[in-house]
Design a protein around this nucleic acid. Structure first.
Length: 334
RNA sequence: CGAUCGACGGGACCUGC
C-alpha cells in the first residue's frame, strides 16, 4: 500500500488521473495515506468534486482521515467554493482535537478565504498557536485578493513585529497592496527593506516595484527602479507602458514602444494591447502602421484579442478600410 | 520507506455594443 500510494501520487503528478484511480481501485486495504494521495491528486488536477466524493467515500468505508487528508480535502473545498462542506470539516476537526495542526490550520484559512469568508479565515488565523510564514502569507493574500489592501498591509506590519522573516511571496503581495492603496511611503519602506536583503535585484520583484511606483504616480522612482533592473523582459516593458497610459501620457507610451521596436526584441500580446490602447486614445494612427507590421511579424494579426484591438484602433482613428481588412483576416470572430 | 499548506509567482482584464 506504501508503494501504491507513491504510484498514485506519481500518476496524479503526471496528470494521469485514470491510471491513478486504476491503481487505487485495485487495492483491497486502503489506508489514510492512500486516500490522501488520490484526493490530493484530484485537487491538483482541478477535479474538486471528485476529491470531495472520495472524501465522503473514505468516511463511509470507515477509514479515519488524518491531517494530510483534511488538508487536501479543504483545498478542494476552497477551489470548489463550497463553504458549507468546509465548515463541516472544520467542525470535525474541532471535535477531534483541541489544537489544530498548523498546516491544517493554513488549509482552513485558505478554504475560508477562497469561499470569501474573510472573517472566518481571520478567526482561524488568530487562533493558531504557532502561525508559520505560510499562515501569514495565506491571510495577507486573502485580504489583498478581495481588495482589502489596507488590511493586508496592517497584517504585514504585525508579521514584521514577529521573529519570522517575510519571504518573496509576502513581498509580492504587499508591494501590490501599496500600489492599490497608493501608499507611497509604505512602498518606499518595503522597497528599502527588500533592497537591504538583496531581494530587489530579482526581476519579478523589480517589475512589481515599478508597477507600485507607477500606481503611486511617482514616475521618477518607477523609472529609476526600471533602469536598475538586472535585465528587462516583456512584463517590465508592459508595466512601463501601462504606467504611461494610466497617466494619459499617450505620446510617451508610443515613444517608449518606438525604442523597443528599434531593437529586434520578442514582444508579447500585452505590450501590443497597451500600445494600441495608446494609439486609440491619441486618435491618430501615426506609427500605427509600424505597430501593425510588428504584429504581423509576431504572427499575431489573426489572433482574436490582438486583431480586435487592432481593428478597434483603426476604427477610432477613422481608418475604416484598414479596420475592415483586419476584420477579414481574423482567425476567429467572437 | 508513501500522501498535505500561501505559488494562475511580476504586467493587460473600467474593448466594443
Amino acid at each position: 500500500v506504501i508503494i501504491a500510494s507513491a504510484i498514485v501520487n506519481m500518476y496524479a503528478k503526471c496528470g494521469n488521473l485514470q491510471e491513478a484511480c486504476r491503481v487505487f481501485n485495485n487495492l483491497q486495504d486502503r489506508d489514510a495515506a492512500l486516500w490522501s494521495s488520490l484526493i490530493a491528486g484530484c485537487t491538483e488536477l482541478r477535479q474538486d468534486d471528485l476529491a470531495l466524493d472520495l472524501f465522503q467515500r473514505m468516511l463511509f468505508e470507515g477509514t479515519k482521515p488524518n491531517d494530510f487528508t483534511f488538508s487536501c480535502t479543504l483545498k478542494a473545498c476552497g477551489n470548489a467554493g463550497v463553504l458549507e462542506q468546509g465548515r463541516i470539516i472544520h467542525d470535525m476537526l474541532l471535535r477531534r482535537d483541541f489544537t489544530l495542526d498548523v498546516i491544517v490550520g493554513n488549509s482552513l484559512i485558505h478554504m475560508y478565504a477562497k469561499c470569501g469568508a474573510l472573517n472566518e479565515a481571520y478567526q482561524v488565523f488568530d487562533r493558531l498557536t504557532v502561525p508559520s510564514v505560510i499562515s501569514w502569507g495565506t491571510i495577507i493574500d486573502a485580504f489583498n485578493d478581495y481588495g482589502y489592501g489596507l488590511t493586508a498591509l496592517e497584517i504585514f506590519d504585525k508579521l514584521e513585529q514577529t521573529d519570522l522573516m517575510p519571504d518573496q511571496c509576502h513581498l509580492f503581495t504587499v508591494i501590490k497592496a501599496c500600489g492599490s492603496t497608493e501608499d507611497l511611503s509604505k512602498g518606499r519602506q518595503i522597497h528599502a527593506n527588500a533592497s537591504r536583503r538583496g531581494l530587489s535585484s530579482d526581476v519579478a520583484i523589480g517589475n512589481t516595484l515599478v508597477g507600485m511606483y507607477l500606481k503611486c504616480r511617482s514616475m521618477e522612482e518607477a523609472q529609476s527602479v526600471f533602469d536598475g533592473l538586472p535585465y528587462w523582459n516583456c512584463v517590465s516593458w508592459s508595466t512601463m507602458l501601462t504606467g504611461y497610459i494610466q497617466q494619459h501620457q499617450w505620446a510617451m507610451a508610443l515613444n517608449f514602444f518606438g525604442t523597443l521596436q528599434e531593437e529586434d526584441l520578442k514582444l508579447d500580446k500585452v505590450i501590443f494591447l497597451k500600445v494600441l490602447e495608446a494609439c486609440s486614445n491619441l486618435g491618430t494612427v501615426g506609427q500605427g502602421k509600424l505597430i501593425h507590421d510588428k504584429i504581423v511579424r509576431h504572427c499575431l494579426e489573426a489572433d482574436t484579442v490582438i486583431g480586435s484591438a487592432l481593428l478597434d484602433t483603426y476604427c477610432k482613428c477613422g481608418y475604416l478600410h484598414e479596420a475592415y481588412q483586419v476584420f477579414g483576416r481574423l482567425a476567429c470572430k467572437d
